[in-house]
Design a protein around this nucleic acid. Structure first.
Lengths: 357, 357
DNA sequence: ACGGGCGATGTAAACGATTACAGAAACAGT
DNA sequence: ACTGTTTCTGTAATCGTTTACATCGCCCGT
């Protein structure tokens, strides 16, 4: 193996910097002929440094490609500029849109976003609960209450030391942390009333999991709507689902076997509503004629289902944005509202039809 | 406002620990009557510490509720046990399912997941590119090539120092990093052939964005499929979309105006396929009779659309899992394959019908 | 009795930033 | 010339771990 006869010029893409380790603040200081203190100041408070020194530092920074090490900063400053977002399921289109809103404003403020995907696993709940306490993140947004308060063991981990928290979409009773949500009860009432106003008399309710705080509100709203329309409440018409397409599809049979058969179903989310409509169609039932359906959330597919789905619109992205803003306020020590309620509206499409007189 | 007459007992939930700061390793050491070195060893390598000391340390840890500070660990160990996942859009159901797979195995291995949501913003691309270089994370998974290589400025940021990377779903030409993907070309060919075998003769293609590496493969597969079926390639039947429901719906008109009208459309994702079917139905076109439709991805809603959507199934969660595993291998210095191709399969549903003789 | 080996422990030096404090230099006002 | 003020800079402590190295017993074989 012969040596090359001529020295090879250094590759142009690596400017001055040695092949080895990333540049440290000390390298920059040496190169600029100043102390590390001056480098640090030149970067974080340029006005406290003479123009000459500042220029030399900037030059040295450019040459070395220096980027402050984040672990060191975190340690020294006792904050990480990271936020943990805890949610039941990233792959759920409802949450992931909220995630997008959170990311929007977190990024704007220079914060990074760590995902805690609970996935129904108590292990994960425990993990992320301690995660909060270990200085990994400056704050957290909780999309359900499992982490603190209402774990399956009845108690869950104790509220972590002093990390600011914000609850999003679902209240965490007794946790005493700010909450951003929609008025689920009012929305459910409006949806139920809407069906009643279209002449529907046997209005069923396909709910989410029973333990759910937010679901309690919706059930209450459903009953209020019935009452307001002068319709009797029939517990037999309330069926519990788990927010999945499959749950919706699976519920169809049950509803059809009820006697008398319901002429409308209010579903606690759009997935179940779409799953239900699909199964009803397959069973030869006319939607919306025989059975009208209302969903909840207004996910993108609601407008694409056949028939298009009448549903309660939730401002998902805005929910995320608002939650993140409140958390940032608390992180910055600014005053923040204890609770925010965002508006919903009923989006009328083709899955509800008028009936009778 | 009257003072309470009796002192209140300390709340029972705070065991021994002072109200102030979180416990440091030194607190534990003092309490256990050992040095900090022993505490550290007791926790990370118990067998190197005498049973007696170990017991005292554990007791002290329990009493103080000590959790090692992560910033300090990261700094000392030069690793963060965090992985950055960069993707175009968290709220997209295609990516978020992959995210779930990634999270599965990352969590299992004790790694946390930071999300870099590009959202089409060059700012964000730049941000996350430097993010990689600042010791925030030990490695990254890239769901598109924008971060390195093919940014809009033609170059993007230089490949970051030495952070292990893995590309997922979309190759990053020239980056020389492991890639996990499906055989997009073969899958597109199979989809096109499937339509041809059902007697479809004017098969259109609703594609993703043109710059897309993966999209080039699908277009190539589409043309191969046509060729294999003995059908002519007509550039007029290739329409570019952007993977959204709206793009699918918007493309319907164009297809219907073509003369002769196409009798099938192969769509590069399910959202566009569903949007297209919706708009076709609204225009009074019979799907699958007049126009058959095939999608790509097999998202959950594919089975719930009317008609149910025939589509190419991608193992999204498994893609995520595999990508994460390879990254972990590289992080651990284990040998890792340079590239993995996962299988797809065509899921036949109701959006394709046979035609003619 | 002595040296070697071994296991358990402690001391102190990293890791890479920020910043309190103090010193130096420059300048102005008397 | 002296003092006080202002502006800039450097020294060194600090954040909370981990771990190389040194030390200290202790046991064992000769």
């Amino acid at each position: 193996m012969r040596r090359r006869s001529r020295p090879i010029p250094a590759p142009p893409e690596a400017p001055a910097e040695a092949v080895g380790r990333a540049a440290r603040i000390e390298d920059v200081a040496r190169l600029a002929g100043v102390s590390t203190a001056t480098v640090s100041r030149a970067l974080s408070a340029p006005e406290r440094v003479s123009p000459a020194a500042r220029a030399r530092v900037m030059e040295a920074v450019a040459q070395t490609g220096y980027q402050p090490n984040q672990a060191a900063r975190s340690l020294r400053l006792q904050k990480s500029r990271m936020v943990l977002v805890v949610l039941p399921d990233v792959s759920n289109i409802f949450f992931s849109k909220i995630l997008q809103g959170i990311e929007d404003v977190l990024f704007e403020a220079g914060y990074g976003m760590i995902i805690g995907n609970l996935d129904g696993s108590p292990d994960k709940e425990a993990h992320f609960a301690t995660f909060l306490a270990t200085g990994h993140v400056d704050g957290a947004i909780l999309l359900n209450g499992h982490l603190i308060g209402q774990g399956r063991d009845g108690r869950g981990a104790p509220a972590p030391t002093h990390v600011p928290l914000v609850a999003l979409c679902e209240a965490i009773p007794g946790a005493g942390i700010p909450l951003v949500e929609v008025d689920n009860r009012a929305a459910a009432r409006a949806a139920t009333l809407h069906l009643a106003e279209r002449g529907r008399r046997r209005i069923a309710h396909l709910t989410g999991p029973a333990g759910n705080v937010l679901e309690r509100e919706r059930r209450a709203g459903y009953r209020e709507g019935l009452a307001q329309a002068g319709l009797p409440f029939d517990p037999d018409l309330v069926v519990e689902g788990d927010y999945t397409l499959a749950a919706g599809a699976g519920a169809a049979d049950g509803f059809l076997r009820r006697a008398p058969r319901p002429d409308a179903v209010f579903c606690s989310n759009d997935e179940m509503a779409i799953g239900l409509m699909g199964a009803l169609a397959s069973a030869g039932v006319d939607v919306p004629g025989d059975v009208s359906v209302v969903g909840f959330d207004d996910i993108e597919f609601a407008a694409m289902a056949r028939p298009t789905l009448t549903t309660v619109h939730q401002p998902r992205r805005e929910l995320g944005r608002t939650g993140a803003r409140i958390l940032l306020d608390r992180l910055a020590g600014r005053p923040a509202p204890a609770s925010v309620v965002l508006g919903t509206r009923l989006v009328e499409r083709m899955s509800v039809a008028s009936k009778g007189g």
